[in-house]
């Protein structure tokens, strides 16, 4: 297996008194795509929040390319090359499209040439380029999702976390988003893709982790799950 880009090791996390993650371990290899599946409330977004530093891990640790980032602040974790496309997109609504992108711009962590800047993001999402001076609140849902992805890319991350990027989008827009993810994966980016819909993930993921009630229920290479030998319905609900 390739080197680990992102690992959660035996992570416990709480919201107040409620134990939302229990001994969760998962690993996304360098250049790989990890699909993180589970029902509503299974703890998928919580894993993302722990990774980026918004929710502290009570026990266990989080490593990025081998470096322990468990106790770091969100901005420090960002500086180590982790970017998030948050659930619900959460673009900065009082900023223009262009401003949303430039506030997140960072040089790559390894000091190399920046692969992502305004020009390359606009080349990837021409719609955003056309609307660069518009207030981002006026964008459609699909465009807002493009903007959230573009914003994450502007940081030139090594690990990209995507929390339900297909949520609330029309089927053809979902297809566009999935094509974008394929493209990013092909460019060598390590990606964690959180989804409720396993059909979207099985095709492009290298590995799959399924969470159930805050615990890891299944960890397997995607290829093993694709042929349908394992019965996943108990973990994922019926689609």
């Amino acid at each position: 297996m390739a080197n680990s880009a992102l690992s959660l090791i035996d992570v416990d996390a709480f919201y107040g008194d409620s134990h939302v993650l229990e001994k969760v371990s998962l690993t996304c290899g360098e250049g790989c795509l990890l699909g993180l599946l589970g029902r509503n409330g299974a703890g998928k977004s919580t894993c993302m929040n722990v990774t980026v530093g918004l929710l502290p891990a009570r026990r266990g640790k989080v490593t990025v390319f081998g470096e322990d980032v468990t106790k770091l602040a969100p901005e420090a974790i960002s500086a180590r090359g982790v970017a998030l496309v948050p659930q619900g997109r959460r673009i900065f609504k009082s900023l223009t499209v262009r401003e949303n992108l430039i506030v997140a711009a960072r040089k790559p962590t390894n000091g190399g040439k920046a692969a992502w800047n305004l020009d390359t993001v606009f080349a990837m999402f021409p719609r955003l380029g056309e609307r660069r001076s518009q207030m981002s609140a006026h964008l459609s849902g699909g465009e807002q999702q493009m903007l959230a992805i573009g914003r994450a890319l502007m940081a030139n991350p090594r690990v990209l976390l995507m929390d339900e990027p297909s949520e609330g989008l029309a089927p053809q827009i979902v297809a566009e988003v999935m094509a974008t993810i394929r493209h990013l994966k092909a460019s060598g980016l390590s990606i964690v893709l959180v989804e409720q819909n396993p059909k979207l993930v099985f095709d492009i993921a290298d590995d799959i982790v399924i969470l159930n009630s805050g615990q890891v229920a299944v960890t397997a290479p995607a290829a093993d799950l694709r042929d349908g030998t394992a019965d996943l319905r108990q973990h994922l609900g019926v689609f």
Binding site: V52, E75, A79, P86, S94, L95, E99, N100, V103
Partner: peptide, 23 residues
């Protein structure tokens, strides 16, 4: 860019920090 970062920090402080802005 500084002004945009301030406004981003007001809009959504958590996500601004995740984007690397020192809110």
């Amino acid at each position: 860019r500084l002004g945009a970062m301030i406004r981003a920090g007001v809009d959504d402080p958590q996500i601004a920090r995740v984007c690397g802005i020192k809110v």
